[in-house]
Write a protein that binds this DNA or RNA. Sequence first.
DNA 1: TTCGTTACGTAACAGTGTTACTGAATCGAA
DNA 2: TTCGATTCAGTAACACTGTTACGTAACGAA
Lengths: 216, 216
Amino acid sequence: MSPRRIDPKLATALLEAAASLLAEEGAAGLTTRRLAAAVGTSTTAVYTHFGGMDNLVRAMVHEGFARLHRRMSTVRATADAVADVMALGYAYRANALDHPQLYQVMFGSAALGGFALADGDRQHGRYTLQPLVDAVARATEQGRFRAGDPLLVAQNMWIALHGLVSLELGGYLIDPYDADVCFEAQLRSLVTGAGDDHEAAAASFTRARRRRSPRA
Amino acid sequence: MSPRRIDPKLATALLEAAASLLAEEGAAGLTTRRLAAAVGTSTTAVYTHFGGMDNLVRAMVHEGFARLHRRMSTVRATADAVADVMALGYAYRANALDHPQLYQVMFGSAALGGFALADGDRQHGRYTLQPLVDAVARATEQGRFRAGDPLLVAQNMWIALHGLVSLELGGYLIDPYDADVCFEAQLRSLVTGAGDDHEAAAASFTRARRRRSPRA
DNA sequence: TTCGTTACGTAACAGTGTTACTGAATCGAA
DNA sequence: TTCGATTCAGTAACACTGTTACGTAACGAA
């Protein structure tokens, strides 16, 4: 007795359509009916493949974390660990600006109906920090940062970065100090706060600035 | 010709009911019908008094900023301006933790239907930063902070604080470094990044910690 | 008292996520 | 090749949302 097999292509088609719907029309535009219409199927498909809109969004969020991790991993370690830390900051912000709507869903800044991430989902994104933790550890070994737990230092940098990106996407950072100005000031301030020398930080900053990847 | 007068008490009753509904059940629990039922009126009242759910939420947000400003203003200036900066950080976070749902609405971390703040609303909260700007300016005058624009420095501190509160309310900060640990580490890191000496910052930190107001 | 004016209740509309129910498509077994 | 069990997906409904047209009832000035 062999039942009708599930079509895996439909699941990925739903995910892709949901991603583009979210990117183009925002969280409010992502509804089951519009999603089904975009794929050319019925709303029921969402339930057979994902068990509800929540899980579909959850899958999108996981994909978003994977992409963030990939982007952070493209930052190569150099002799200047502090510049690496800053380059990771550039990568983090660039990824968020490339996928603003997805970022806001990933970090709860946009509610999709009554959607809420489970505890497991929040911890899922934790591995994303690893490249930053490594860079902080090397900066500490090189004597640029004060002795301390690299995980705590990296987490605090992530917190500050998230604050900037979150407020930037929300439209809160405007003249006289827009998001660009605040971000670059923040990078220097963060490494100085971690123990780096002010002039050394400035030198690493220009080095990191040269490495930043162009916007997609 | 004198028409039926509007009842101003109904508007405030709606606002109060909306605030408690938001606080107790979150953004998803704040609907026109439940709000009307809580006040003992009909959904139409929301439209005659506010012109829609959006404006009612907007009024709540403005009230939230006013309360934040009041809370920040309770921090008195002392001889230790850096401790004042840190005390303002404590006040900011305490206010957010006292009204978590409102904070998430104020900064776009929770969408109420298709509700979105207008540009004017985002700038409305700007005056809230003034106490922090003043404290930063005094810390700069006292030679604790590097020379620079106090507004930019204060704004970057606000950005970092918002990042922490936002992630804390989202449930992202857990073991091994929970929100308390991150927050206090961040306070010290922020003032160090602004130019303060590491040991002086530690001394100001213990002073500010003693001043923090108890949770409501 | 009368009458114009306006707030508010009722009920509807278009939308949402979700789910019985039903039909159709599929693949393995006979 | 035929058959039939099994599961996907489409239809239509449910309960819910914000919003609004309509009618009623209350109010205050004349």
